[in-house]
Design a protein around this nucleic acid. Sequence first.
DNA 1: ACCGATTTGTTCTCACGTTCACAAACTCTT
DNA 2: AAGAGTTTGTGAACGTGAGAACAAATCGGT
Lengths: 234, 234
Amino acid sequence: MTARSSTDPARVIPEATVARLPVYLRALTALADTGIRTCSSEDLATAAGVNSAKLRKDLSYLGSYGTRGVGYDVDYLRYQIAREIGVTQDWPVVIVGIGNLGHALANYSGFRSRGFRVVALLDADPSLSGEIVAGVAVRPFDELEAIVHDHDVAIGVIATPASAAQDVADRMVAIGITSILNFAPSVLSVPEGVDVRKVDLSIELQILAYHEQRKANGAEAAAPVAPVADGGAA
Amino acid sequence: MTARSSTDPARVIPEATVARLPVYLRALTALADTGIRTCSSEDLATAAGVNSAKLRKDLSYLGSYGTRGVGYDVDYLRYQIAREIGVTQDWPVVIVGIGNLGHALANYSGFRSRGFRVVALLDADPSLSGEIVAGVAVRPFDELEAIVHDHDVAIGVIATPASAAQDVADRMVAIGITSILNFAPSVLSVPEGVDVRKVDLSIELQILAYHEQRKANGAEAAAPVAPVADGGAA
DNA sequence: ACCGATTTGTTCTCACGTTCACAAACTCTT
DNA sequence: AAGAGTTTGTGAACGTGAGAACAAATCGGT
């Protein structure tokens, strides 16, 4: 018997699949909200914007939660995915850097509704201390250790300027935070065992610009006129 | 002679490479700012947080811009990457949805400094019209078409609630926008030829939560006490 | 002009992720 | 109870990406 139970920690879920589970979870919630109790892999795949074979394979890593000939029970599958991701429990989170982006993050309702609780907002600028953002008071960065210790925080969000990001990360790691979501446009170096995910607004736009430029160039090249001069002449 | 010149539109750059080019660009800019004129692939790879072999392979897709035995000229390589991505030109951008996140995006200096110019802020809520955010007036959503036409906008940013996102996207596509950066937590369906990139804050946190949970479970399983009760009993 | 040191560009191999295709398993009708 | 129709779960083929390793090219010293 080599079947892996869903509580077997040795069972490995591919990273690409993990990244899609939250999408499935959201799609299932949307289906449940419209009163749908059962759905096929095709239905769910459409709602999640993926191929149904990929969806089935992804779900198969979690276990066998569907019924052949029928499909998936929406609520049951939703619970299983939520449990797998870990959003059935509450995750305390600290946000460091309360500028424009920090404000937006603190106010973002999508966190709270998915099991993430913002327990503190921190900023190095003392003039911000005491300000209330989304019902939480901004506190000095120095209080990070006490807060992380008190609330058993494992996840930190960095929304500072790039220049401060590494220092903040170092401090977080030293205090015991093991997962960091980094919005600052800088490469963080952290020790083994600490997970970092990066969200970089301008990189996303640059990727779009690249493809946009290619579309334009392609159209240009396809047009019968104006062969593009090579840079060599300039 | 099958060599592909850098202006050959048929030359294909892998998507994974495209996504890293902006990181290299940023790292090069940082190096240039510290007065460094030349760097090896090892130096740049370290600054960008990647493996040097991967970096060299990525750069090789653009052309042969290094010198063996020496390395890369920082300014020259920076220009070549910027040109490849398309950030040597100016990209007009519209932002739709001026809530907390829209404000943060409008104020984000990283856009402007990388060739993206916010030409308009739009919101369906008429009570926001006329408000000035980051030096740009908020205008009614209806003016999208005129603005896109006037400024030749190809890239749109959606920062609305999920419920409005698909409608906004449809409208953008109808008007001629071909690249969309979507911050709303919803799956957009768009026709062939339109690029969509998604930034989803809560998905990133959920991915971290998954790994965090696994770390905790692993530690628990390793500990000699407390076998985890299966959900079946609950 | 040659030799050793250095570093790029590229080839080869392996791992990962996606998609197809189908057998297994379930429901419903007769 | 059996067969037709569905739909899942998975094995196999394919494509893409990562990393190691090395040949080609350049520089500096003698």
